[in-house]
Structure formats: C-alpha cells, structure tokens
Write a protein that binds this DNA or RNA. Structure first.
Lengths: 205, 205
DNA sequence: TGAATTCTGTAGCGTTCGATCTAAAATAAT
DNA sequence: ATTATTTTAGATCGAACGCTACAGAATTCA
C-alpha cells in the first residue's frame, strides 16, 4: 500500500555513483546528488536515509558494476597469468582515457573517507580484499599450471599487486602518462615470469 | 613602517599543515585553520591571501620538513640500497604508529586536490618527481657499486618504487597492518637484490 | 468509498562556508 | 606630533550546507 516510486532506482543510484566518483564525498552536496539522480531532496532522504547511507549504497553499486564485473570477466578465460596482466593493463588504459581524472571510487574512498569513518573503512577494506583475493587465486592457479615460478609467494605477491594497483590509481590522477604508469607495473609483472634458465646451451634443453 | 606581525609565522604555517594533513583540503575550514594557527581570520587573509594559497604554502612546508628531510638524512650514508630500504621501512613504521591515520599530505593531495586543480597538480607532481629521483639516484649508485643487478632498469624500478610507495600510503590508511604493508614492499625490494648464483659448488666461488 | 500508508515538491530550519569590511591598535618615516 | 602603513579583533556578508516539516498526490487495503 502507499504511493509508488516514480523514479528509476537503478538510474538514481548510478547518478549518485557519478557524483561521488567525480567530486568525492565531501565536495558532493545533497542538491548535486538529487539533481543528478533525477529526484527531489525529500525522495532522496525517503529512499536512502541521507548522504552517508547513500554513499554506502553507491559504493556497493560501484563495486558490483566495476570491480566485480572486471574480475569475473577476466577470470573467466582460465588464463590466470593473463588475467592479472590484463587487469592492470585495463586500469592503465582506463586511466589514460579518463579525461576527468575521476580515478577509482574505491581507491578515492580508501584514502579520503575510510580513515575518518570506521564503518565505511571496513566496507572499503572488504572490497580491497576482494581484489587481493583475485590476485592470489590467479597467482596460485598460475603456479599450479607451471606458468609462474614454483616458489612464488602468493600472499606477498598478491599484496604487492594490490599496492601497485593503488599506487597506479594515485599516480594516474596526478601524472597520467603512459610511460610512467607502465613503468610502475612492469617490474611487478616480471615477478610472475619464469626465471630464465642460466647458461642455456645448444642441444637438449 | 606599519604595525608588526604579532604571531609566529613558522608556528602558524605548521598549524596549517596539521589541519590540512588531518582533515584534507575540503574538510578544513578557514576557522579551523585560524584557530590552529593561533591567529584571527583577518590575519590569515592578510598574510596568506586565502585558503588555497595557504594550502600551497603548507604543501611546500610539508615537503621541506618531511619528504626532503627524510631523503637528505637517508641519502647521507652513502649506502644507496639501504637508503631505499630504510625509506620504505620508515614509511611503514610511521604509518603503523600514526593513530590518526593522517597518511602523507602529498599523497592525500595527489589523489584529492591535484585532479581538480591544475596548478596544485603540477606542484604535487613536482614533489612526487623528487621522490622518484631519489629512488633512481640510489638505484644507479647501487648498481655502480655492484650491490644491485647490472641490468636493473633504473627508470622502471624507480617508477615502480614510487607506485609502491603511493600504494603503501593508501593501504595504510584503510588497512594499517604490518604483515600487509611489508608484503606490499618486500617483492619490490627483492628486485634490487643480486640474482642468486645458480648451483654454487664447493671450492672456488 | 474511507482510512491508512507512502512518495513528492516546496519551503525553510539552523549552521557553517570562504571571504570581506570596519575601526581600533601599533609601528616607521617624516 | 603628524602622517602613512600595516596588523588585529570582531562583526558580518551572501551563499551553500545537511536535513526536516508539511501538505498534497497517489496508491493499496478494508
């Protein structure tokens, strides 16, 4: 019973994502949000409770549509090493094409709002852990498949890759240069390459 | 001629650094600033011109007292490899001891304000380049001293280390855990180690 | 149809924002 | 002493902030 919502909830939350993503939490006003969501201020408070709760919802939406989509898509091929390489390559391409320099909503939130809000901090940490788990799964799969060194430390390298990803995102917002961003990533990818066989001789391998 | 300043300019700018550092640019109000600087609002505008100009001055102060001090101190030993290791170790220790999770003012600014302000963006990019130059100098010195692989790519690895540093700072604000932060750094430090000699035999080395 | 419930637009709440004005206070040069 | 210049404290500016009250519109129950 009661009056039905008139606005498209999915379009609305996408509008909120765009706002928070482009301007950050603090710099986004409730009026900005309502306008980009195509609703009135009262509807915003009625449907989401307030600015902070809406931000949490926007984070979840972003994580689903951006991070998890990418992980699922790249991990589907069954080529673990390529999945990791493609993941980072895709971030670089998107960063270079991102003329507004919006970066990644999760990374932006990890630096800006997470330290000041314990609850949101836990949410963001959970999303970052999902990315790290993606790296770790594919490192272990790559090692099992013989594509990576047998003694590779999946814990340390997956954590390292998460750090490199975050650094990549930060650097891309201030110095979006291809040579620079690829320089950040390349040594990390080299970690997953097989060690060169020393003194390969002609004849039998 | 004219009335003399009553406040300590050095204490004042330090107060501004603390404010921007702890709360970020947007969330810091001119009233917060004036209070922590020990001056009135009118004096703030008289001495610095406004919030944005004060932020630029605070950035410069921070870079001098924090980043450049650390670089000068660690690079003085003449042990290039140890300088890089100690640099990252010091960041980890400071991050773990930083109960307010303020992180690094330069990194925070690189993600938050640089993308929205071209002029400040160039300033921040300049500071980041100083850090990268520190890494590169010490990689090349370490290579020359025979402490690092002869074929190490100082451009790529210094850029990689800058990325790792930025990622470290982001991660420390959301997940300040020693195991995690050291996991981010360790594979990067391994890049600078000499390759193990294959099949060392007894007798002559 | 009447009552209950929910959504929406408008208006406005009190607060705070960055910035400025005014006038008194303090100093240096004349 | 007079004048010129600068700093100070305090009040205040218009605008924007997050949020809410309220009345009307729209819908499902009885």
């Amino acid at each position: 019973m009661g009056r039905l919502k008139e606005f498209d909830e999915s379009k609305a939350i996408d509008g909120a994502v765009d706002c928070f993503w482009a301007r950050g939490y603090e710099a986004t006003s409730v009026r900005d949000l309502a306008e980009h969501m195509g609703i009135g201020g009262a509807s915003l408070y009625n449907a989401y409770g307030g600015k902070r709760a809406l931000f949490v919802a926007a984070l979840a939406r972003y994580a689903d549509r951006s991070m998890r989509e990418r992980i699922a898509r790249l991990e589907g091929d069954g080529r673990p090493k390529e999945a990791i390489r493609a993941f980072l390559a895709e971030i670089i391409e998107r960063s270079l094409a991102d003329r507004d320099r919006k970066g990644c909503l999760l990374v932006n939130s990890a630096l800006d709002v997470a330290p000041h809000d314990a609850e949101i901090g836990k949410v963001v940490a959970g999303y970052l852990d999902e990315i790290r788990a993606f790296f770790r799964r594919n490192i272990e799969a790559g090692r099992s498949a013989g594509q990576m060194p047998r003694n590779i430390d999946s814990d340390a390298v997956s954590t390292h890759l998460l750090g490199v990803l975050l650094g990549l995102r930060v650097l891309a917002r201030t110095m979006p240069d291809r040579v620079l961003l690829e320089g950040v990533v390349r040594p990390a990818l080299d970690l997953m390459d097989m060690p060169v066989k020393p003194r390969a001789r002609r004849g039998r391998p």
